[in-house]
């Protein structure tokens, strides 16, 4: 994990590091580091960055229906969404 983290940090600057901290806002529902835990929701760790960004933007602009994510996604800038997606996509898929 540490080695992976260093590689990522080189590859995408501080995006993954910032994304790790930003993602911590999401983990109460989606699990620490996106792992999920007996989850009714999809596991986020290991999903592609583009898919994650597309989902969040669709929640944000209302094109993807949701119970709650449309309200939460509107709290985050496109840059923050990008950083969260970089972090999650670097994680292991379970």
């Amino acid at each position: 994990m540490k080695a992976l983290f260093v590689v990522l940090a080189l590859a995408s600057g501080s995006a993954a590091a910032n994304g790790e901290r930003l993602y911590a806002n999401c983990s109460a529902c989606h699990g620490t580091s996106g792992a999920g835990n007996g989850s009714a929701l999809p596991v986020l760790a290991g999903q592609s960055k583009d898919a994650l960004v597309a989902s969040m933007k669709a929640f944000k602009d209302g094109t993807r229906p949701a119970t709650i994510m449309h309200q939460i996604a509107k709290g985050y800038s496109d840059a923050q969404i990008e950083e969260i997606a970089v972090f999650l996509s670097s994680g292991k898929k379970k």
Partner: peptide
């Protein structure tokens, strides 16, 4: 549906 998400919230929050 939100009942399921509520329980999901509890499990993940406890684990987190």
């Amino acid at each position: 549906l939100e009942g399921e998400y509520g329980m999901n919230w509890a499990r993940n929050n406890w684990a987190d």
